Simulated scan of single mutants.
Amino acid sequence: MKTPHTCCARGARVRVVLRNGDVIVDRFVERTGKFVVLAKHRIRGGELRSFGIYKEAGR
């Protein structure tokens, strides 16, 4: 199973889509060996479908 690129600047707002279809918008904290740590979530790398910088519309 392939996983998307999962790193960005600390404190950046990211949009994460999980394999079950849930969408999470949160601040990036760090990438550990198995997990992507966000301000309010800790997600396994294998559960991710997409990961990217979140930019609000109209900005």
Rank of each mutant, 00 (worst) to 15 (best):
V14F: 06
P4G: 11
V36E: 03
R15E: 15
D26W: 06
E30G: 01
G46R: 12
R31K: 13
G45F: 01
R15G: 05
H41I: 01
A12C: 07
R15T: 02
H41M: 02
R49S: 12
I43M: 11
E30Y: 01
R59I: 01
R10E: 14
T32N: 07
C8K: 04
I43G: 11
K55A: 08
K34G: 02
F51W: 14
T6W: 00
A9M: 02
A57P: 10
G46D: 15
R44Q: 14
R31W: 00
I24Y: 04
S50P: 01
V25T: 15
V29E: 14
R19L: 15
V25E: 13
T32D: 12
P4K: 07
D26H: 07
G21S: 12
K55R: 15
H5N: 08
A39H: 12
R13D: 04
R59T: 04
H41N: 15
V25G: 09
A57R: 14
V16Y: 02
V17A: 13
G45M: 08
T6V: 10
F35V: 00
K34A: 13
G52E: 15
A12K: 06
A9W: 00
M1H: 01
K2I: 03
V17F: 05
G45L: 14
K40D: 09
K55T: 11
V23S: 13
A9D: 06
G11F: 09
T32P: 00
L18T: 06
H41E: 12
L38H: 07
T3C: 09
V16P: 03
G11A: 10
P4S: 03
E47G: 00
Y54H: 15
A9Q: 07
R10P: 02
I24T: 02
H41C: 04
L18N: 06
V29D: 09
D22F: 03
K34P: 00
E56F: 03
T32R: 15
P4Y: 08
